[in-house]
């Protein structure tokens, strides 16, 4: 995939949330939710973004779509800096970048029939005649497996899985190029999860979609992603293709995550890497490598010098001083 210009390029993206306290609301500290991360997403691929709760995955997704303003950094989508756009230019780029939300209950307006919800983007962008919009809406509903008569119903009349498919239809109605999927299946039953994942895969094939797929479930990410980025405490610690990452993880944190995936075979013995303690506070992250207090292989250098994201093998980037030694 080298040589091709990426569809989305994120460079040194940073988001600090101020922590205010006292009567005069003085800023006493910053939550370093996302700290100087860089990655790119290529046309037609799915980049999985994994990490535990509070590591900044969702913030990253929202920054990319400019639902949040960054503290620093840039996001280029098709060569345009998303954060430099205003008014009409921002509106027209939004046609091509959509989002699927985690919670299918709060992501649909309870007072809007779902047909209206799916047509909302078309109405905002004034695409075609009302009749054409109506037809696009019915067509999109059919694509996600809903019947035309559902269009007049309200969100509370649907199940969680159906609502998530409505959310997908809403994002899809504008026929975008790029969709941020913010944990789209984590609120669903396991039986519905695979259904929605397969739907996302099918739609990707049909419309040539590019996904930034945010999740905390590694099996889900393995199922859908082409490449995977692992986040820890606001930093990207490892980026690699799915096969590379799942079979030859380089970063200790990735290894620990992978060893935590349950295997449905009680006889199989394997080495478990158990992490001690909790994720440190993003207000005062550890010095040097942010993972060093919990890393079983930590050495003196880890607490002093912050490891940069480097590329020891082609297409496999990792932020660990001793990645090569730990590879075996």
């Amino acid at each position: 995939m080298n040589g091709v210009a990426p569809l989305l390029q994120v460079h040194n993206l940073k988001k600090y949330f101020p922590v205010q306290s006292g009567i005069i609301r003085r800023t006493v500290a910053y939550v370093q939710a996302v700290d100087e991360i860089s990655f790119e997403v290529y046309q037609g691929e799915t980049l999985g973004l994994v990490g535990e709760s509070g590591c900044g995955k969702t913030t990253t997704g929202r920054l990319v779509l400019r639902l949040l303003e960054p503290t620093a950094g840039t996001v280029f989508f098709e060569g345009q800096n998303v954060f430099a756009l205003k008014g009409e230019a921002l509106k027209s780029i939004r046609r091509n970048m959509q989002m699927i939300f985690q919670d299918p209950y709060s992501s649909l307006d309870p007072r809007l029939p779902i047909g209206e919800a799916v047509m909302e983007g078309l109405n905002i962008h004034r695409i075609g005649t009302p009749q054409e919009r109506f037809e696009i809406m019915l067509d999109t509903l059919a694509k996600v497996g809903l019947e035309p008569y559902h269009a007049r119903r309200y969100p509370h009349e649907f199940s969680g899985g159906q609502r998530q498919r409505i959310g997908i239809a809403r994002a899809l109605a504008l026929r975008p190029k790029f969709i941020v999927c913010d944990e789209p299946v984590s609120a669903l039953d396991v039986s519905i999860q695979s259904q929605v994942l397969n739907l996302l895969k099918d739609l990707q094939q049909e419309f040539g979609l590019t996904y930034l797929f945010i999740a905390h479930n590694l099996s889900v990410v393995e199922h859908i992603s082409d490449r995977v980025a692992v986040m820890y405490l606001g930093k990207i610690v490892e980026v690699a293709s799915r096969e590379e990452l799942f079979h030859h993880p380089l970063h200790p944190y990735t290894k620990a995550l992978l060893s935590a995936i349950p295997i449905p075979n009680p006889r199989l013995k394997r080495e478990r890497i158990l992490l001690k303690g909790d994720v440190p506070s993003p207000i005062r992250p550890p010095s040097g490598c942010r993972f060093h207090p919990r890393c079983p292989w930590a050495r003196a250098r880890c607490s002093e010098e912050e490891p940069l994201l480097r590329e020891p093998a082609t297409g496999h980037r990792v932020a660990c001083h001793f990645a090569e030694e730990l590879a075996h």
Binding site: R62, L65, L67, K91, S92, R94, R95, M97, Q98, M99, F101, Q102, D103, S106, S107, L108, D109, P110, R111, E120, G121, I124, H125, G167, R170, A171, L174
Partner: peptide
């Protein structure tokens, strides 16, 4: 989230306030 969704769809602040937020 549905307000964020409308924003991603391209709704301007007044649209968000009067069409999405106020009715709810």
């Amino acid at each position: 989230d549905f307000v964020a969704a409308s924003r991603v769809l391209g709704g301007n602040p007044f649209y968000l306030l009067f069409r999405r937020i106020l009715p709810n």
